[in-house]
Nucleic acid binder design. Structure first.
Length: 503
RNA sequence: GGGCCCGUAGCUUAGCCCGGUAGAGCAGGCGGCUCUUAACCGCAAGAUCAGGGGUUCGAAUCCCCUCGGGCCCGCCA
C-alpha cells in the first residue's frame, strides 16, 4: 500500500474522533431508506423556503460536496436515483450536532440523512435534515468534483473511481446489462436454450487464435482456455438440442487494442434444420430489436443515436469474391494459387507472414480493399472455402461456403455459417488447414469429428462479439469503454505474473 | 514486435521549445458568513517534478536507460 497522505490521515482522524465520542464510522445498516427522487418529487411542489412537516424521509448515498454558510450548509448527496441537496441547519440539527456533524464529514463519505422534504429559497428541492449519520467514512478523497477522472490509466485501472465520478459511466454499465438481458430474452422467445459449456478444454478450437494455457493438477496435464464456443455447442445439437445458445467469455492470447480484448464476451447460437439464410433473418431481427431498445435507454446521447442508426435496416450486402475482384482489381480470385495470393497481398501492402494459408491471404486482401469501404452495417456473404474449415460448401457457388460476416464501419461484429456436417469432409478440411502451413492455428479436434459421425442435422450457427455490439450501439470509441475491468499490467506492489518460458 | 506521444501536490493543471531553486484551482486545515449548488472571503500548509544515470556552475526543462500509460502500425480474419 501507498503510505497514507496527509489528507488520508486527516480523514482517519475524523473517524477516530467519532469513535472516541461513542460513534461508529462504519455502521451496519440504515433501514427504511428511500431513493432521493422521492424527496425531490415531494419538495418540488412546495413554496420556496418551506418544508413539508407531514412526512419524514430517510435517504442514503455518497456526499458529493458541502457548501458551508456559518449556521447553514448545503450538501449534495448522490444515490442510484441521482443527486439531492441536503439542507443542514443549526436550528434543525442542534448547535452541537450541526458543528460536530459537519466537522466529521468529507466529500466522498457515505452518509444517511433523515428529514423533511423542502424547497430551498432559491427553488432547489432539498431534504431539511434533522439527523445525519455517517455510514462509511471515505479515507481517500474522491476524484475532482468538476473534472472527474481524467487520467486514462486511472480510468481503466481504478474503474470504480470513474464510475463514482461519472453518472454517464454508470449508465453505460446499466445499458450493457440491459442489452445482455434483451439478447437472452430474444433468443429465449425464439425457442433457444441457454447452455454453459466448458471454459477449460484439452484443446481450444473453433477459431484461429492463440489460446491461454493452464494446468490441471487433477489431470496432471495441460488445459487451454476456450477461444470460441462453437465446437461444444455443435455437440449439443448432435445430442438433440435443436436450438442452443451460449453467452459467455472467450479468451485469446493476443494484444489488447480499441476493438480487441484478450477476454471478451461472445454470443454463439446454433439452430438445427435451418440454414444461413434463416440465421441472417434472425440476426437482422435481433439487431433491429437491440437498436429500438438502445434508443429507449439512451434517448439523448448523440453517439448512441449514430450507433442505433447503424443497426436499423436496410442493411448492405456484399459478395466476398465479387467485391474483392471489383475493388482490388483482381480477376478470378478463386482461381489464384497461394503464391499468387501472397504476391497480391504483398503488393496491397499487407505484411502477413509469407507462410500463411490461402485463406489468410484472402482475408488480408479483403481487409485491405473492401472493409475500409463499409459505411454502415454490412453483411459480407459467400466467402471462398479456404477461409474457413467449419462452414458448409455453397449449394450453387463453386469454391465458396455458405457464410456471412457482419461488419460495422471499423470492425467485425460476427460470423455465421451453414455448418459443415459431413464428418469426412470436416476431417479433410482440418487436415488441409493443418497441412497447408504451420501458422494456421485451427486445432484438429478429433473428438468433434467423432461427434459429427453420429449425425449433425443440417444446422446454422452464428458467433457475435457482444462487447463490440455494445460498443457500436452506444457509440463507444474503444472496447475498454464497455469492459469495466480491461486487462492491464499489474500495478507495482500488487504482484506480477511470474516470468514463464515462451512456448 | 515497430513508430509517435504522455507522466509536475490526493485531483485538475501552468512552467518544458529558449536551463537560473515549481505557480494556480479543487479537495484538506484554521477563521468568517442562515440560501448555496464548480458557493464566496481571509490566513497558513501541502510537490524527493514517475524512477535511475548523464551533460552543466546550475536540470521539471537538454541527453540516455528503466517503469507505467495513451495513440497508430503489425498480430489476433
Amino acid at each position: 500500500m501507498d503510505p497514507p497522505t496527509p489528507l488520508e490521515q486527516e480523514r482517519r482522524a475524523k473517524a477516530a474522533r467519532l469513535r472516541d465520542a461513542g460513534g461508529e464510522p462504519y455502521p451496519w445498516s440504515f433501514p427504511d431508506r428511500v431513493l432521493t427522487d422521492a424527496v425531490r418529487a415531494a419538495g418540488a411542489g412546495l413554496a420556496p423556503g418551506s418544508e413539508d412537516p407531514s412526512r419524514s424521509f430517510r435517504v442514503a448515498g455518497r456526499l458529493r460536496s458541502v457548501r458551508e454558510h456559518g449556521k447553514t450548509a448545503f450538501a449534495d448527496l448522490e444515490d442510484g436515483a441521482g443527486v439531492l441537496q441536503l439542507l443542514l441547519r443549526s436550528d434543525l440539527l442542534g448547535e452541537a450536532g450541526y458543528r460536530d456533524g459537519l466537522a466529521g464529514l468529507d466529500p466522498g463519505d457515505i452518509v444517511g440523512a433523515e428529514g423533511l422534504a423542502s424547497l430551498s429559497r432559491r427553488g432547489e428541492p432539498s431534504l431539511a435534515v434533522r439527523s445525519l449519520t455517517l455510514l462509511a467514512k471515505a479515507i481517500s478523497p474522491p476524484p475532482d468534483k468538476y473534472h472527474g477522472v481524467q487520467d486514462p490509466e486511472a480510468k481503466v485501472r481504478r474503474r470504480y473511481l470513474e464510475l463514482l465520478a461519472s453518472p454517464e459511466s454508470r449508465r453505460r454499465v446499466r445499458v450493457r446489462a440491459l442489452l445482455l438481458a434483451e439478447i437472452r430474452r430474444f433468443l429465449d422467445d425464439a425457442g433457444f436454450v441457454e447452455v454453459e459449456t466448458p471454459v477449460l478444454l484439452p484443446v481450444a478450437g473453433g477459431a484461429a487464435a492463440a489460446p491461454f494455457v493452464t494446468r490441471s493438477n487433477y489431470l496432471d496435464g495441460e488445459l487451454q482456455l476456450r477461444i470460441a464456443l462453437e465446437l461444444p455447442l455443435k455437440r449439443l445439437i448432435v445430442g438433440g438440442l435443436e436450438r442452443v445458445y451460449e453467452l459467455g467469455k472467450a479468451f485469446r492470447n493476443e494484444d489488447l487494442d480499441s476493438t480487441h480484448s484478450p477476454e471478451f464476451t461472445e454470443l454463439e447460437a446454433y439452430w438445427a434444420y435451418a440454414d444461413y439464410h434463416d440465421m441472417r433473418g434472425l440476426a437482422e431481427r435481433l439487431f433491429a430489436r437491440l437498436a429500438d431498445r438502445t434508443a429507449e435507454w439512451l434517448p439523448d446521447a448523440p453517439e448512441a443515436a449514430r450507433g442505433v442508426a447503424l443497426f436499423r435496416p436496410p442493411y448492405r450486402t456484399v459478395d466476398f469474391v465479387e467485391e474483392l475482384e471489383r475493388l482490388g482489381g483482381i480477376s478470378d480470385v478463386l482461381g489464384k494459387s497461394r503464391d499468387e495470393l501472397r504476391e497480391l497481398a504483398h503488393r496491397a501492402g499487407s505484411t502477413v507472414p509469407p507462410g500463411s494459408s490461402t485463406g489468410t491471404f484472402l482475408d488480408k486482401l479483403f481487409e485491405k480493399y473492401v472493409e475500409p469501404t463499409f459505411d454502415r452495417l454490412t453483411f459480407v456473404v459467400d466467402h471462398p472455402e479456404a477461409t474457413t474449415p467449419l462452414a458448409k460448401r455453397h449449394r450453387t457457388k463453386p469454391g465458396r461456403v455458405e457464410r456471412f460476416e457482419v461488419f460495422v464501419p471499423g470492425y467485425e461484429l460476427g460470423n455465421a455459417y451453414t455448418e459443415l456436417n459431413d464428418p469426412d469432409e470436416q476431417e479433410r478440411r482440418f487436415r488441409a488447414q493443418l497441412g497447408e502451413r504451420a501458422d494456421d492455428r485451427y486445432a484438429y479436434d478429433e473428438e468433434f469429428v467423432r461427434a459429427l459421425r453420429f449425425g449433425l442435422p443440417p444446422t446454422t450457427g452464428i458467433g457475435l462479439g457482444v462487447d463490440r455490439i455494445v460498443m457500436a450501439l452506444t457509440g463507444a470509441a474503444s472496447i475498454k469503454e464497455v469492459l469495466w475491468f480491461p486487462l492491464v499490467r499489474p500495478a507495482a506492489g500488487t504482484g506480477r505474473p511470474s516470468p514463464v518460458e515462451p512456448r
